[in-house]
């Protein structure tokens, strides 16, 4: 399983983390789930509602998520993942990320932003079907020039 994403979307989600530094950015990845992994067709920036602790927490409001999902469906796209940044912290999921992860089958992308500059970007597939058997599996990020390549 790999995460398929265009260079433009990959660069954009990393740039988002630089823009919101020292706060965490967050956003939604729209696309299609296929046998070889999730294919991203578009990313949508979302607001971080955790203004009380935006340097180390993020939350996307459900109504914003619903509106993104609605717009995606109009284009034939589903939510296939999410991204956020870790300011001055490794691009590794935390116990908080894991506890708050409920979108099975989706990909969670994390970018470390060190002193304002995007560093490492990692992708983790949330496997399992229940809260009891869920697990994050690191997956390769396959950069494509155009949506649908390597499909």
């Amino acid at each position: 399983m790999k995460l398929h994403i265009t260079q433009a979307d990959y660069d954009a989600l990393r740039a988002h983390g630089e823009e919101t530094y020292p706060h965490e950015c967050c956003g939604v990845m729209l696309g299609h789930a296929k046998d070889d992994g999730n294919h991203v067709a578009a990313i949508v920036r979302a607001g971080n509602t955790r203004t009380d602790s935006a340097h180390n927490r993020y939350n996307i409001s459900p109504i914003e998520l619903i509106k993104i999902q609605r717009e995606g469906r109009k284009q034939g796209l589903d939510i296939v993942g999410f991204y956020h940044s870790h300011p001055d912290h490794p691009a590794m999921w935390s116990s908080t990320d894991f506890a708050e992860a409920h979108w099975f089958g989706c990909c969670y992308v994390i970018t470390s932003v060190d002193k304002g500059k995007a560093n490492l970007t990692n992708a983790f597939h949330l496997s399992g079907t229940t809260e009891d058997d869920k697990a994050f599996q690191q997956e390769e990020i396959l950069i494509t020039e155009a949506v649908g390549e390597n499909a």
Partner: peptide, 26 residues
């Protein structure tokens, strides 16, 4: 009606270990 699981997280909390392999962050 729309059912929508929450999406949240952040760098607080201890780092996790990938189920497939541990990560080495540069």
């Amino acid at each position: 009606l729309t059912i929508i699981p929450s999406i949240a997280g952040g760098r607080t909390g201890r780092p996790g270990v990938s189920a497939s392999r541990a990560l080495c962050c540069r």
